[in-house]
Computed example of a mutant assay.
Amino acid sequence: MKKIIHTDQAPAAVGPYSQAVAANGFLFLSGQIAIDPATQELKVHGTIQEETKQVMNNMLAVLAEAGLGPEQLVKCSIFMKDMNDYAAINAVYASYFEGIAPPAREAVQVSRLPKDVRVEISAFAAYPQEK
C-alpha cells in the first residue's frame, strides 16, 4: 500500500505527480525546485544560495508533513544547471545536516530543469523502525 503525502507548506505539484509517497517504510520525495509555497511563484532571481535554501525548505516541509526530519533522509539527488554552482549549493545543503549524519547523495549537472531553475533536489527517507 502507498500513502500520498501533501502539504500546503511546500509548492503544489507542477505536473502529474505527488509531493511524496510513503510505501513499505520509505518516503519517496519528488524533486523540489525553488517555488515559494505561499505564492506558488519561482524564487530564482536571487543567488544560487537563496534558491537552494528554498528548495531545501520545501523538502523539509514535505518531510515534516510525513512526520520525518532531515535525520531520516537516506538518499538525496541534486540536479544543477551549472557545475560551477556546486560549492555554493553544497554549502547550503550541508548546513541542513549539521550535527547529524548526512544521507548518501549524488550531484550532477543537467542541461535543463523544470521551469528553467538552477537546482532541483529529490530524496528518499526511511521511517524509524518500531522496537
Rank of each mutant, 00 (worst) to 15 (best):
E130L: 09
A88I: 02
P102A: 07
G46V: 01
I5N: 03
F124H: 10
T47I: 03
A12W: 09
L27K: 04
Y127A: 02
G15M: 00
S77M: 11
V110Y: 10
N90I: 03
A23K: 12
P114G: 11
D82W: 05
K2T: 13
A34G: 08
Y86K: 13
Q40T: 07
S122A: 15
G69P: 10
T52L: 01
V55E: 07
I48P: 04
V44P: 00
V110K: 09
G25R: 03
A61L: 08
Q49W: 00
A104Q: 11
A87D: 15
I100V: 15
F28Q: 05
E65C: 08
Q72T: 08
Q109G: 10
V108T: 14
K3R: 15
G69K: 10
P11S: 14
S77H: 13
I35L: 12
K43G: 07
H6Y: 15
F28L: 04
S18M: 02
A104L: 12
V55D: 05
E98G: 06
E51W: 00
L68S: 01
K43C: 12
A94R: 12
P37W: 02
P37E: 05
A126L: 05
L63A: 03
L42R: 13
F26C: 10
S122Q: 04
M83K: 14
M1L: 06
A123V: 02
I89S: 05
N24W: 00
P37Q: 04
P103K: 06
Q129A: 14
A22K: 08
D8G: 09
V119G: 01
A107R: 01
A34W: 00
A13G: 11
R105M: 15
D82A: 09
Q54Y: 06
L73Q: 01
L73I: 09
Q72W: 10
V119L: 07
Y93K: 10
N58D: 07
P128R: 05
I48Q: 03
L68G: 00
K2Q: 14
P103G: 07
A125P: 02
E50N: 11
R105W: 14
I48N: 04
I100K: 08
I5H: 04
S77K: 11
A61H: 09
T7V: 09
Q72G: 04
N58S: 12
N57L: 09
V14P: 00
G99C: 04
I121F: 04
N90T: 13
K131Y: 11
T52S: 06
I5D: 06
P37H: 06
A22M: 06
V62E: 02
M80V: 09
E130F: 10
P102C: 03
V108D: 12
E51H: 04
Q9F: 14
E50R: 00
G25M: 06
Q54C: 13
E51S: 08
S18N: 14
A91C: 11
V14C: 12
S95A: 09
A91L: 13
K2G: 05
T7S: 08
A94K: 12
V55C: 07
R118Y: 04
E51K: 02
M83H: 12
F97M: 08
A123K: 02
K81M: 11
Q109Y: 08
V74G: 03
P70E: 11
M56Q: 05
I121T: 02
Q19F: 06
I121L: 08
K115S: 15
I89D: 04
N84R: 14
A87P: 05
A91M: 13
P70M: 03
